[in-house]
Amino acid sequence: MEDLKLKAITAEMNILSRSDGSVIISQGDSSCIVDVNGPIEVNSAANIDMNKAYVDVLYRPKCGIPGVNERYKEKTIKGLCESIILTTLYPKTQINFQIQEMDDSSGIFACAINGCNIGLLNSGLEMKFNMAAVHCVLDETDEIIIDPDCIEEETLAFTRVQKPKRISGKYKADFTFVFESLKDSLISVHTNGSFSLQKYNEALKLSRQACRKIFDFYADLVKKCSVVYIKNSILEYI
């Protein structure tokens, strides 16, 4: 098997001044901005939950109005965030996620999930664990590739009429695995295409190793600014 590589990740937190938590994340060729707000007042009375917070996700695609694909992604991310956030600490409130897709190569879903996690870290909401999403594909030669290169999506200039295929012609299947940080166990899988179970297990194993790298990235990111916060808080005591 070739040397497998996880693409370069760049992220900056706190970029939107009016949000509780925000991040711009660029993973390989995909990039997105995630905006976390909460706890805030609930929008509609139907969503008020006396015991916990209501999580609302809005996924904005690059072109056009959000459609069924976006609703699907929103639902997935909502489920993930509900399990991460200690929602019982914020009853009768709402936590909003807004994801703006900026550059889409095939790994945008994983990028968005990672962005949501960093956004949560930045917002100061209580979390049970971190999550990391890894995207990998099964190409025609039955090789697994983690975080593939940008696929020349010819039709991406078009809006709804000619929506790009979910998997580009070259790949047989693609997987997005989401892991949690406590025991590296799998919390969510999203697949497209057809694959054998053996390949699935291989992809899972590789992605699990890749997710460690992403958790390290989060740790580095937080370490940098935590030093500043700690220094500042010490200064207050002096």
Binding site: M1, D3, L4, K5, L6, K7, A8, I9, T10, A11, E12, M13, N14, I24, S26, N122, I146, L206, Q209, A210, K213, D216, F217, D220, L221, K224, C225, V228
Partner: peptide, 18 residues
């Protein structure tokens, strides 16, 4: 992304050991 900021981080390509 301004990499010199405290709130940003950059991680280059990493290879995954099978």
């Amino acid at each position: 992304i301004i990499l010199t900021n405290v709130t940003s981080n950059f991680c280059d390509e990493q290879s995954i050991d099978n």
